[in-house]
Design a binder for these strands. Structure first.
Lengths: 145, 145
DNA sequence: TGACAGATGCAACTGGGTTGCAATATAATT
DNA sequence: AATTATATTGCAACCCAGTTGCATCTGTCA
């Protein structure tokens, strides 16, 4: 069973309805190769035959995030992007300074996973670290041409 | 000579005017202990006796950023924050999930400075890395009470 | 003091995101 | 198939950070 059906089944089992909008937004997210913003999602949904109001998209994304099925990706340009919750692997993002395109990468050793350093930060800053975000900025292949 | 005067002198030398608004915004940034957003800056400027239009603040921040005197800090909540350009030391930020407060921290070894890993990323992703951003999310001291 | 160019204010606008409420559609039940 | 409960959706108005064009003002220097 593919990811899309796993998600739909999980939602149905949780007592949630499988509406047109929900199925379409999940399909769009499953087919995406990079995190998508709500405006992108609206266009993509329309392109596969399901036009929905933006409110619905925002609420659905919030819902899927709450269900732990989708992750919010904040790149800093003020647009909230979403991707399917990464399964197991810890990954980060590449953000193009020109076109804002976002790609995914995996990094060998990330400070965010170094218990000793996190511990040090928490002690010196009086801050409880629960998560981290590592992003690389630069130019994507297309914008470098 | 303190940082504030160094900046003012540098600007004057560059042929730029030392206006009330400019002096006040620089003062506010110099006195800040953490990155500030434009709305915060407007309030702080008013509190030291210089009320300015928001357009002025946005344009001034853009100007100071262009002069390399101020750095933009993107935390992901859609608000652009600004801090004096860090001198020499490479630092990162702690972002509170509750109140969005931002603090600064220094990290021992950051992937963003590991030439070997950057090289690896550029080769496997066909992306030219020019910068990076590492942020830790969690709860600040106040929100943990 | 006059004048130029840099700097500012105003007002209207953009766009992502939110909210309250009425209307609709899904899925279980009869 | 009709009924029903409520999860879900659409609409319209709204919020707020940030932007833009243009007229006006002001710091600086001659």
């Amino acid at each position: 069973m593919n990811r899309e059906n796993v998600i739909l089944t999980e939602l149905k089992g949780g007592g949630y309805r499988l509406t047109q909008a929900r199925k379409a937004i999940i399909q769009v997210l499953c087919e995406a190769r990079a995190p998508l913003g709500a405006p992108d999602i609206i266009v993509l949904m329309a392109s596969i035959g399901t036009s929905v109001n933006k409110t619905t998209v925002y609420r659905e994304l919030e819902f899927l995030k709450g269900q732990g099925l989708v992750a919010e990706v904040l790149v800093g340009d003020g647009l909230r992007r979403y991707e399917l919750m990464p399964e197991g692997h810890h990954h980060h993002h590449l953000v193009c300074n020109e076109c804002s395109a976002v790609e995914c990468v995996e990094v060998e050793s990330c400070v965010g996973e170094d218990v000793r350093q996190i511990d040090h930060i928490e002690k010196t800053s009086d801050f409880k670290v629960t998560d981290h975000s590592l992003k690389f900025f630069g130019l994507c292949a297309r914008c470098r041409l």
